[in-house]
Amino acid sequence: MNGEEQKPDCGAVLSEVYLYLDLECSEERRTLIKKHLDDCTHCLHEYGIEHEVKALVARCCGDEVAPRELRERLRIRLNELVIEVETREFLP
């Protein structure tokens, strides 16, 4: 984060683009990322590429479902990572 208004920098936005695409970040974070994407042509372009990759994977692998145990382990691990990332970014 940089600036007095806690505007996300390009690296932070691009590192969280999949969380944004999957609606897996906080509403406050989504608002900051969306504003950055609206203002930054480079990040908007990268977001578009990631969005297309996600759509392609969904089309090609949309019928496959991971085992319930794997999904639960991943969900737990991702929740731990998101909390760790959001905590570090908001420290002064």
Rank of each mutant, 00 (worst) to 15 (best):
P92F: 02
H36R: 07
G62E: 00
E24A: 14
L14H: 04
L37N: 14
G3A: 07
Y20A: 14
T31D: 12
N2D: 13
N79D: 04
H45K: 14
E5V: 03
S15R: 08
A12F: 02
V85N: 11
G62M: 00
H51E: 11
Q6L: 08
L74G: 08
R73H: 12
R71A: 13
D63F: 01
L23W: 01
L78V: 03
L14E: 12
E28C: 02
E84R: 11
E64Q: 09
C25A: 10
C43S: 08
E27S: 11
L56R: 10
L70C: 04
L70V: 07
C43M: 05
E89F: 04
V57N: 04
G3C: 06
H45N: 13
E64M: 10
E16C: 10
I83Y: 05
Y47Q: 12
C60Q: 12
Q6T: 04
E50W: 07
V65M: 04
R75Q: 14
E64W: 07
G3Y: 02
K54L: 14
R73K: 15
L91W: 10
R29M: 07
R88C: 01
A12D: 04
V13A: 08
M1S: 15
K35R: 14
R73Q: 15
F90T: 05
L78N: 06
I49N: 07
E72A: 01
G62Y: 00
S26C: 11
C25E: 09
T31E: 15
G11D: 14
A12C: 03
L32N: 07
Y20I: 13
H42R: 02
M1V: 10
A55K: 15
R75I: 03
N79A: 04
V85Y: 10
E24H: 09
I33H: 11
R71K: 15
N79F: 00
E5Q: 08
C25D: 10
E84T: 06
V65H: 05
V57I: 11
V85F: 06
K35Y: 04
E16V: 01
A66Y: 03
A66S: 12
E80S: 02
I49Y: 06
D22I: 01
T41G: 09
T31G: 12
S26D: 11
C40V: 05
T31N: 14
K35W: 03
V85S: 09
L19N: 15
L21K: 11
G11C: 07
E16A: 13
R75N: 13
L74P: 00
T31Y: 06
L56V: 08
L81H: 03
D38F: 01
D38K: 06
R68E: 15
L37Y: 02
G11F: 05
Y18A: 07
D22P: 01
N79S: 04
I76T: 10
R75K: 13
E86Q: 15
L91F: 05
E72P: 00
